[in-house]
Amino acid sequence: MDQPPVKLYALSTCGHCKHTKQLLDECNVVYDCIDVDKCDAEERQAVLDEVRAVNPNCSFPTIVIGDKVIVGYKEAEIKEALGL
């Protein structure tokens, strides 16, 4: 089964974000990851608009798997959305 596109919005300092990255790596998922705290001001605004569009709380981690949005490190939900 083809893996849906995966995009992770994270913070480099956040423990839950680190666990999410570890899970995706362990599952050999190909994903796009943005550490928002490391973005410059202009890039950050554009990325925050993306996050807010799918998660009004603008909290992290926010992960978009295909058309599914998961907020927080929720291993079971992430695996299910990946079809694992």
Binding site: L11, T13, G15, L48, S59, F60
Partner: peptide, 19 residues
């Protein structure tokens, strides 16, 4: 470690899991 990174960045230990 995240708190110390933020202390370095901002001058105060901002929550590591919030922007």
């Amino acid at each position: 470690e995240g708190l110390l990174v933020n202390k370095e960045r901002y001058g105060y230990m901002s929550c590591p899991c919030r922007l």
